[in-house]
Design a protein around this nucleic acid. Structure first.
Lengths: 348, 348
DNA sequence: AGCGTTACAGCAAGCGCTTTCTATCCAAGA
DNA sequence: TCTTGGATAGAAAGCGCTTGCTGTAACGCT
């Protein structure tokens, strides 16, 4: 039925071992023999049995990429960059590897399950992107899993995620706190004193860090924060829309709205506009990430650019062992403040 | 070193066969025995060896999802929907399956290579999303691959892609032609007579179909198309930006610009605005797909909504054999015209 | 000419699991 | 009481490939 290595060997009049070596190319095989084998492979339309090789060689060419939400360009961009370096087909890396993008949907359970599945497949490497969930038992479970993976020889890289202590995981962390702080400082510098903040889901490192940066800026400027000024929501436009309406209801005198990310900011803009408020004349808006569409917003969005593609590419290279991990296994990737049209001097 | 089935068996004082049966749960095992095995699994922290089971059982639980560009929400949304139905962790489907998202980057080579890789892994199913490349040799190669996959028992589903004749592939095709036509008819109905069209990359079915729909509408209205009115480019905002500038240069009298998709339309809006033109007073703009950000554009984008998530979910269910394929193996998914602020009556 | 080398090619032993077939035990029917 | 059969558990034969080790020519050296 299905063509096996043995069939190819028979056809090429060589031993299965030789066929295997031709296909894997890490053992000297005479040119003429190789040719004969290759011809047989072609004629029989032979395709290697992945599981069988993985089993025999005790290694696989799967690389897992965990993302919170694959429909969100934030992750899409990172995944794309990682994948291009994994050297899947087209990448310059020799061995063809299958990059597996796993969508956790931000659910801790699924994250863990995917990790187990990857472990089961004996993945060559795993890259976890995006913020982690801040929930002690879960964090411990993930750390344990990562440790296991590391011990089993799977390279683990965290991209845009805080370091995981006691694991061999390499971490490329985004400086969310610093970015958040810089952003709010910019707004304060423009004269804003009453700033609403639309945070992401609670229990997320990303959410917390950005918010902490924001608060640090307020504190540094001697602005006392009103608890009504912070609203939590998901990382999408809809949440931004609703949260903004809520913010406006709580305190109509706000002159700026800082959003957890660009999508949220977009929703905020829509809500403000619907409320008859002009941006930035009446209310300034700021986002985070600088996704491609942010520059096309009207007015274009003031935000913090995160080098998603660069970080992803680097994570990918490290995962493939093609780049030295940063000293200490941890590198902080900084964001860059992008001042654009959505932020301005507050009215009156 | 690594814990194997045999280790668990030894610890639970049963045979490996029994452990396997407990883990796969398709054979009667006494409750007490099962419990004992499960405890051993837990104590030893045992994780099944995926490749080994796949080899022994001659099946795998991998499901491949091919996308053109994972950083593009168009694909992200579909992939997300497909994945949720694949029943990866969290899905209600029993067996835990690993959904593999493969990023072809729109490159025919890579598409083929990924298909081979998936074939090599003996994937349980494969879903190909997005338009196909219109290049005879390549199309034939893909069709051959799909046929092979089908014969090997892999379920193949095309989502948002034209049918592949002579294969067992189930196709959920988007009615790009109809949508394109409806969109342009809307514009013509508003009074537009000189419409620029920013098409996607050449040699793509999606590109051609949308363009054909556009032209059909023009023809039906008796409008003779000026060849200068069409420009090709990639499916991103940058291409839209550049193409619009080019269009304006070629014919400043255009009153509408129809874009290949929403991202392109966003770029077009930016270019128009930079050129001092108001939307829709001076020039109307229309997109395609209705991605989430389209409604937040200013003005919000007139576009054709494609039920990406629904189609993806359906494709996923069909791939898992949880839903009957459409009669004839082909279903056409229609888009819905969304008239919004970016289209209006032409000036003068 | 004799012998150590080098360069290939083949043998065969697994890799860790699934599954068919067989053995065993015990309750129930004759 | 003996038989029959249902319910479990085990033995063992692979699944298709990789790889360490073992040949075996052909080559070059002294």
């Amino acid at each position: 039925m299905t063509v096996t290595l043995a069939d190819v060997a028979a056809r090429a009049q060589v031993s299965p071992a030789t066929v295997s070596r031709v296909l894997n190319g890490n053992y000297p095989v005479a040119a003429t023999t190789r040719e004969r084998v290759l011809r047989a492979v072609d004629e029989l339309d032979y395709v290697l049995n992945g599981p069988a090789s993985a089993l025999a060689a005790a290694t696989s060419d799967l690389v897992g990429i965990l993302v919170n939400d694959i429909a969100d360009p934030f992750f899409g961009i990172m995944a794309s960059a990682i994948q291009s370096e994994i050297g899947g087909p087209g990448g310059r890396a020799g061995g063809e590897r299958l990059a597996v993008v796993c969508n956790t949907g931000g659910d801790p359970e699924r994250e863990l399950t995917y990790l187990t599945l990857l472990q089961r497949q004996r993945a060559a490497a795993v890259v976890l992107t995006g913020g982690a969930v801040e929930n002690e038992p879960h964090a411990a479970a993930v750390a344990a899993k990562l440790r296991k993976l590391g011990e089993a020889g799977t390279r683990v890289v965290l991209c845009g995620r805080p370091p995981a202590p006691d694991t061999r995981a390499i971490a490329l962390t985004f400086d969310n706190r610093g970015g958040g702080r810089e952003l709010t400082e910019h707004l304060i510098g423009l004269g804003h004193r009453r700033l609403g903040y639309i945070a992401g889901p609670e229990e997320r490192t990303t959410t917390r860090h950005r918010l902490e940066g924001h608060r640090a800026a307020l504190a540094a400027a001697g602005i006392e924060e009103d608890p009504r000024w912070t609203v939590h929501g998901r990382y999408d436009r809809r949440a931004g829309h609703e949260a903004t309406l809520e913010l406006l209801r709580r305190d109509p005198s706000l002159t700026a709205v800082v959003a957890a990310n660009d999508s949220v900011a977009l929703g905020a803009c829509a809500a403000l506009r619907e409320s008859g408020l002009r941006i930035p004349e009446d209310v300034s808006v700021a986002g985070f990430d600088d996704l491609p569409f942010s520059i096309d917003a009207v007015p274009s969005l003031t935000t913090v650019r995160l080098p998603l593609a660069e970080a992803g590419a680097r994570a990918g290279r490290i995962a493939m062992g093609r780049e030295e991990p940063p000293p200490g296994g941890i590198a902080v990737v900084r964001g860059e403040l992008m001042v654009r049209g959505s932020s301005g001097v507050p009215r009156g």
